[in-house]
């Protein structure tokens, strides 16, 4: 069964007589419109999820790849000296753009989510943290560890690789899952429309018989059904997409506290992607109905 571009043109231009020959069937019409709207709504959310996780993976990858942390665990009277020594080592290390010790306030804010506000950090044996900002080329972690081991015995270098990679991998998988969900939604839409089209064809068996008796070809009969289901799927998907976009738009804005959950949505040109859903739904409906119609007409002949 080959796709003929002329048939698509016929579909767009339409044949009111072919449409009129098939009586409207309220139930399948409502079912198709509702299915397309619901699936489009879900597709918009899956798309928003995919894009949000994509942004998250990119951000984690970019931000975490550019920073490292040096943890200095030493007796209280040696912490300041070892911190200065570590910074001196870092400042002379190729690939390190900047290095600075975190202030007590910064360290307190890092611990605040677990211990609450007002933590007397000075009274606790908390290691001193040094933030390292890499330049574009990055540094040789193995070489730096060797130098630190010799000159700053209490220093432990964490280049974030250990926990950065699983996070990025998880975000990537979540993004793939989002796209896979969109594919599943498309397949489910095709299945539902096929069932609705088959139901409409079965309900109109007598109409089809009459049209055949007066000389109608299968493509003529199929066109009436294809056009009807394609337009229903498009209109339903358009409604579902608009509602989905509004729902995504009214989600809370992203901020540091909400993190990923409040970052779910579209940004900039990303808002154009959901607009692809209605035409895609129409294309899915076109091929699903056409295949169902021609198969059923062949079986009925």
């Amino acid at each position: 069964m080959r796709f003929d571009p002329r048939q698509l043109l016929d579909l767009i231009i339409g044949d009111p007589q072919a449409d009129r020959a098939v009586p409207p069937t309220g139930f399948t019409a409502r079912l198709t419109v509702f299915t397309a709207a619901a699936m489009a709504f879900l597709a918009v959310f899956a798309m928003a999820l995919s894009m949000a996780t994509g942004r998250l993976a990119d951000r984690w990858s970019e931000e975490l790849a550019r920073t490292s942390t040096l943890r200095i665990s030493a007796p209280a009277d040696q912490v300041a000296a070892q911190t200065r020594a570590a910074i001196a080592v870092l400042e002379t290390t190729p690939g390190v753009a900047a290095a600075r010790a975190l202030t007590p306030d910064e360290q307190r804010s890092l611990l605040e989510p677990w211990f609450g506000p007002g933590l007397p950090i000075e009274a606790l044996p908390i290691p001193q943290l040094v933030e390292i900002i890499e330049d574009g080329a990055g540094y040789d972690a193995t070489g730096l560890r060797a130098r630190l081991q010799a000159e700053v015995p209490g220093a432990v270098l964490d280049d974030h690789t250990r926990w950065r990679e699983p996070l990025i991998s998880a975000a990537g998988r979540l993004r793939s899952l989002g796209w896979f969900a969109i594919l599943l939604i498309g397949a489910a839409t095709a299945a539902m429309i096929t069932l609705a089209a088959q139901s409409a064809l079965a309900a109109n068996a007598q109409v089809i018989r009459v049209m055949r008796l007066v000389g109608a070809e299968d493509t003529y009969i199929a066109r009436a059904f294809v056009r009807r289901f394609t337009s229903r799927a498009f209109l339903g998907a358009l409604g579902g997409t608009v509602i989905g976009m509004i729902a995504v738009a009214v989600l809370p804005n992203g901020d540091d506290v909400g993190g990923f959950l409040t970052d779910l949505g579209f940004r900039g040109l990303g808002w154009f992607w959901p607009l692809c859903v209605p035409p895609l739904a129409a294309i899915v409906a076109y091929f699903a109905t056409r295949a169902a119609a021609l198969r059923t007409l062949k079986e009925q002949s």
Partner: peptide, 24 residues
């Protein structure tokens, strides 16, 4: 099947039960 459709255009049939589309 399309050939049958072409043949039927050359044969006019009056069916016993008329075979109309009742909604038209």
């Amino acid at each position: 099947r399309d050939g049958v459709a072409m043949i039927r255009r050359r044969i006019g049939v009056v069916h016993q039960d008329c075979q109309f589309l009742d909604h038209l």
